[in-house]
Design a binder for these strands. Sequence first.
DNA 1: GATACTATACCGGCTGGACGGTAAAGTAAT
DNA 2: ATTACTTTACCGTCCAGCCGGTATAGTATC
Lengths: 195, 195
Amino acid sequence: MPLATIEHMSRPPAARDAVLDAFERLLVEGGDRAATLDAAARGAGVSKGGLLYHFPTREALIDGVLARFSALVDADLEVMASAPEGPVAYFVRSSVASDTAFERAGVAAARLAQAGHPSAVRMIRSVRQRWLGAVRAHVADPTVALAITLIGDGLYYDSALHGDDAETGLDAPPEHEMDDLVALLERLADGSPRA
Amino acid sequence: MPLATIEHMSRPPAARDAVLDAFERLLVEGGDRAATLDAAARGAGVSKGGLLYHFPTREALIDGVLARFSALVDADLEVMASAPEGPVAYFVRSSVASDTAFERAGVAAARLAQAGHPSAVRMIRSVRQRWLGAVRAHVADPTVALAITLIGDGLYYDSALHGDDAETGLDAPPEHEMDDLVALLERLADGSPRA
DNA sequence: GATACTATACCGGCTGGACGGTAAAGTAAT
DNA sequence: ATTACTTTACCGTCCAGCCGGTATAGTATC
């Protein structure tokens, strides 16, 4: 169970990560309902018994996804704090989901939260709070910080809307609208502290 | 052993709406996975056969929910256009989910979209577009209109996050922060175009 | 360095229940 | 008698989780 002491592990559990990846992908593409143990095992090229060796229950699998997401958020917050284009621009632009491991984990967590899994709801809430705090640290006006965070939420969920059909383009606004949006928010952020 | 007929429901179309209501509630509280035909029938006080008479497949039930949502959006857009507090304030404030039939239908549709149902994804997209259009009609700067719509999206999804646990308070910002937010957005909306 | 034992990693079959959907029959009003 | 609606009973499938077994690798003892 403990993840530490890798050096003492005889064989690296390749299956574990493969299962986690497959389960995450299923969540992103088809939501909680599509993410079954059988499908995850199949997607990972592992037998169901093998899957259940690493994750004895479905809840354990969910916890695994959430744990991985939390770790990725930690890393992202550090990147954001020292982003060359500034934290606000970085935050807003990175809120539209590309296909990084980070984004996939986030969308998977959101799916689980929407399905009502309490631990996922708690996780999303705390992550949102951490993001809000990070934005607040760089924006004087707390109302502006709130607005920026909410815009990030909106972009995030909108871009996470599409299931598996790659047919329609992303729900994200086009490039130049994003540029204008970022410009507006940066003007608000380090601009007029009052009327 | 069989369920005794405690009372007579004599309203012919009553079952249909009852089923729709129950299915919607299940979607909101537990997502796509929890919204099963059996649970919906039970929640509506109808046998499963009775449910399947009105909605021959699960897809038909989903379409029923989406159709009802679309009708409610039409009504809401008219209310918004002539809201006494102004469209922007109305839009932003009504984006945090209370427990109206309108909000429940919207959250249900969002759950279905997150689960990857194509018709639900299309519906959410078109509704979002209609809202954006309505905001644009009352806000000169299109970037500000986009920002306002995105903030609405953020508020909407955040407040729709909680499953069925009434324990934690809503994810919506407290009253006074909402006031400040609305004030900021209205200032942006009809205020300085500030190139 | 061979033997005996233990831990890790995985397989595949199984079960009981829940799922979406079907079929036939019953009831009430027209 | 037909129509509108509702019931009970049932089917095939899929689901989460369990269990017995296998194979490999490390460890300890002699």
